[in-house]
Measured scan of single mutants.
Amino acid sequence: ETGKELVLALYDYQEKSPREVTMKKGDILTLLNSTNKDWWKVEVNDRQGFVPAAYVKKL
């Protein structure tokens, strides 16, 4: 879809709370919100949640 910003997972991340999502290094995720410098909201496999901003980079 146009207008979607994507990020690349630089590291594996295992969710530690229900508000977070698990990702694997190399995953491409849809970026939903990056206003917080530490935690970015992403969508992966129809799930939305937060990942550490340092673990992903914008494509």
Rank of each mutant, 00 (worst) to 15 (best):
56 V>N: 00
2 T>E: 13
39 W>V: 03
1 E>P: 14
5 E>Y: 11
8 L>S: 05
54 A>M: 14
53 A>P: 04
5 E>M: 12
39 W>Y: 07
34 S>L: 05
23 M>A: 02
28 I>F: 06
33 N>G: 06
49 G>W: 04
11 Y>E: 09
3 G>N: 10
8 L>E: 14
30 T>M: 12
26 G>K: 02
14 Q>T: 14
54 A>I: 10
59 L>H: 06
18 P>A: 12
21 V>H: 04
58 K>Q: 09
46 D>W: 08
24 K>D: 04
29 L>P: 01
48 Q>F: 07
39 W>A: 02
59 L>W: 08
6 L>N: 05
34 S>D: 15
48 Q>P: 06
9 A>E: 00
59 L>S: 04
56 V>T: 04
30 T>C: 09
23 M>L: 08
44 V>G: 12
59 L>G: 04
56 V>D: 01
23 M>G: 00
9 A>H: 01
53 A>M: 05
45 N>V: 10
14 Q>D: 14
33 N>D: 15
20 E>F: 06
49 G>D: 01
31 L>I: 05
17 S>P: 05
20 E>H: 06
37 K>N: 11
12 D>W: 03
43 E>S: 10
7 V>I: 09
7 V>N: 00
53 A>I: 04
55 Y>Q: 04
15 E>R: 13
37 K>V: 11
12 D>I: 02
57 K>T: 15
59 L>A: 05
39 W>P: 00
11 Y>F: 13
23 M>V: 09
47 R>Q: 07
58 K>V: 13
16 K>H: 09
5 E>G: 11
11 Y>R: 15
28 I>A: 03
28 I>W: 05
17 S>W: 06
3 G>H: 14
28 I>E: 03
38 D>T: 14
2 T>V: 14
55 Y>C: 11
15 E>F: 06
9 A>S: 05
52 P>F: 02
19 R>W: 15
37 K>Y: 08
19 R>H: 12
43 E>M: 11
43 E>L: 10
54 A>F: 08
2 T>N: 15
14 Q>E: 14
57 K>P: 01
38 D>K: 14
43 E>Q: 13
8 L>M: 13
6 L>H: 10
49 G>C: 03
47 R>E: 05
14 Q>K: 13
8 L>W: 07
39 W>M: 06
14 Q>Y: 14
22 T>P: 06
16 K>P: 04
53 A>E: 03
30 T>R: 14
55 Y>M: 13
13 Y>G: 00
33 N>V: 09
19 R>N: 15
55 Y>W: 07
24 K>P: 01
3 G>S: 14
29 L>S: 02
53 A>H: 03
24 K>I: 08
56 V>F: 05
21 V>L: 15
22 T>D: 04
10 L>G: 02
36 N>V: 05
28 I>R: 05
18 P>R: 09
6 L>D: 04
4 K>N: 10
3 G>T: 15
13 Y>T: 00
21 V>S: 02
32 L>T: 05
45 N>Q: 12
46 D>E: 11
32 L>I: 15
20 E>T: 07
54 A>K: 14
14 Q>V: 15
45 N>H: 13
17 S>I: 04
47 R>D: 03
5 E>C: 13
35 T>L: 09
58 K>W: 08
27 D>L: 05
53 A>G: 04
5 E>K: 09
51 V>H: 00
44 V>Q: 15
15 E>V: 06
22 T>N: 07
58 K>T: 08
34 S>F: 07
34 S>I: 06
32 L>A: 03
50 F>Q: 03
20 E>M: 05
24 K>R: 13
13 Y>P: 00
20 E>N: 05
42 V>M: 02
3 G>R: 13
29 L>H: 03
45 N>T: 09
56 V>R: 00
59 L>C: 11
18 P>E: 12
22 T>Q: 04
18 P>M: 10
56 V>S: 01
18 P>S: 12
20 E>P: 05
46 D>Q: 11
49 G>L: 05
17 S>Y: 07
23 M>Y: 02
38 D>H: 15
27 D>E: 12
22 T>K: 04
12 D>E: 05
50 F>C: 10
42 V>P: 00
10 L>T: 05
27 D>V: 05
48 Q>S: 11
31 L>C: 07
55 Y>S: 11
48 Q>R: 14
